[in-house]
Design a protein around this nucleic acid. Structure first.
Lengths: 156, 156
DNA sequence: ATTCAAGTTGACCTTTAACGTAAGATTCGC
DNA sequence: GCGAATCTTACGTTAAAGGTCAACTTGAAT
């Protein structure tokens, strides 16, 4: 890697499938740093920004917001040992992980419920007759009682 | 159930933990039907609307939008046999189910990836030294090469 | 008769991140 | 000197399900 190397905004954008607007936006947020533009009117991004963009994409994929990514970058700039960054990122990942697991569990029970409903809908031919015992999906209220609108958890 | 019974907007709202605004909003969308207000200025919701509200909440819980719910209600009004409603709802549920399963699978692999990263972050004490082989979480680009930013799928 | 909680219409506001898009002026590279 | 690239500024997008005034009117109970 050549530390002297620098990219124009379009180059950097193309390298990662972004638009110039996006790169500019990232810089606005403090995620990228262009050289001071002495004499020139166009931005120049030193090589290290390429790595940053890649890192941004990665962290974004893992569910971090750009604001959070910025915090991490700031942290890294202040603590060069990397300790605080590692701790912070680790915590963030852990909490994301927990959220994700909860979401997955919720999704699982959602899937179960929905399966039950689909089954009900397709199994009983005259399900809509509201036999008086239970009615999971009846839609015309004129014939229905609130108490007859059941869910799987209500017990069969 | 007394077919003559009717509710004021606040009553209906309180029954289901809604606000009057919400009930009004539902009526605007065509989800509820108040009696024609001859002589009166206040809405009156016949009993059947209670069942509708309950149904709305149920369908909402299963991920249908209010617009979709309205379509179902319309369908039910046009086809009293219930056949088309059952078909439509069944299809909707099925597609929701498929989406949910995909989401869950994506979530699962996300969880795996994230676990890998957490492990990496916590296992290698000087992970941030960028040993040159791989670097999953390094944050200061000055010392890093883009190619060193790896993910679990990249192979260890 | 009074009162005052409850109801009414209408119209705008909220949330939210990560950009898109338009416009017109400049600049760079060849 | 020309056209592609870049610049700044600033508003637009997305969008579901209501929230929040504001200013007014009703209706049931005292």
């Amino acid at each position: 890697m050549d530390p002297e190397r620098s990219y124009k905004i379009g180059e950097l954008a193309r390298m990662f499938g972004l638009t110039a607007r996006t790169v500019r936006f990232y810089e606005e947020l403090g995620l990228l740093e262009s050289e001071s533009r002495e004499g020139s009117a166009h931005r120049r991004y030193p090589e290290r920004n390429a790595v940053r963009v890649r890192r941004i994409q990665q962290l974004k994929d893992y569910g971090l917001t750009l604001a959070e990514i910025r915090e991490l970058f700031d942290l890294a700039a202040r603590d060069r040992s990397g300790e605080s960054v590692r701790k912070s990122l680790s915590e963030k990942y852990r909490s994301r992980l927990e959220e994700a697991r909860k979401k997955r569990d919720a999704l699982d029970s959602y899937i179960e419920d929905l399966s039950w409903h689909v089954e009900q809908l397709e199994r009983v031919p005259d399900f809509f007759e509201c036999p008086g015992a239970s009615c999971a999906t009846c839609l015309w209220a004129e014939r229905c009682d609130v108490r007859l609108l059941v869910s799987p958890k209500d017990g069969a």
